[in-house]
Amino acid sequence: MKVFEKTKMLTDAHMHYCPGCTHGIVHRILAESIEELGLEEKCIGIAPVGCAVFAYNYFNCDMQEAAHGRAPAVATGIKRCLPDRTVFVYQGDGDLASIGMAETVHAAARGEKFTVIFINNSIYGMTGGQMAPTTLVGQKATTCQSGRDPAVNGYPIRICELLATLDAPYYIERVSTQDVKHVLAAKKAIKKALKFQSEGRGYTFIEVLVSCPTNWHMQPVEALRFMAEECTKTFPLGVFRDKSQEEGNAHA
C-alpha cells in the first residue's frame, strides 16, 4: 500500500533548511500544487536571496536565481515574453519587503500575471537573525537585541494589506504553517493562485507565515506556537483580495 509519494516537481537534492523550519513544507505544497494542476511541463521558478537561495536546486523545473529583491522584475521579464508559461516567485521577507519593495509593489500594480509565494518568518534567517521589515514589535533580533522598538525601528510592514490597496492584484491571501490544518489551507490557497495564473487572470500573491526556530531561539514546537499566537496578531490570516468572488464566479 502506497501511503505517500514525493511529488516529481521536487528534485532528490538534500534540502539545507534548519531543523524545525517550515520552508520545506512550503516547497512541498507548492511543488505538489504545480503537479496536481498539470502545470509541471511549462513551469519556470525564480529563486530569491535569503534562506531559499538554493530553491533552484529543489524545484524540478527551469529556474532562475535572482539578485536580492529583484525576483518580481525577473519574473516580469519572463512572463511578458512567455505568457503561456507558469511563473512563480519564491521570496522571503527581507528580499520581498525590504530591498525588493519597489519591485514587489510595481509588479503588483502592473498586474503581472505570475504567482508570488512570500515567506514571512519575521527575521533575516540566512544572514543570522537580523531585524526584518516584518519583525514584530518587541521581537528580538541581532540588530535590535532588546527587541524591536517602534521609536527606533518603526513598525512591521503588512504586505498583503499594502498590496490590497492596489487595483490590479487578482488574488491576495495570508496563510500559515502553524499546524496541519493550516498547512492544508495554505496549499489550497497556493493551488488557487496557480490556477488563477494558468487561466491568465492576473497577479496572485500568497503570504505564508513560517517559523524560524534557529533565529527565534526556540524549540520547533514552541516556534510553531509563537507563530500561531504572536505572528498572527500582527499578520492576521485571511483573503485580502479575490476578484473571482467579486466577479461572482467562484473558482475554488
Binding site: 519556470i44 525564480i46 532562475q64 535572482a66 539578485a67 529583484r70 522584475a73 525577473v74 519574473a75 516580469t76 521579464g77 519572463i78 512572463k79 511578458r80 515574453c81 512567455l82 519597489a102 519591485e103 509593489v105 510595481h106 502592473r110
Partner: peptide, 24 residues
Amino acid sequence: GVFVQAESEVAAINMVYGAAGAGV
C-alpha cells in the same frame, strides 16, 4: 515584442535578466 517601462533602472536590468534568460 515586449516593452515595459520599469519602476527603476535596477528593475529594468533584472527584467532583461528574466527575458534574456528565457531565450529572448
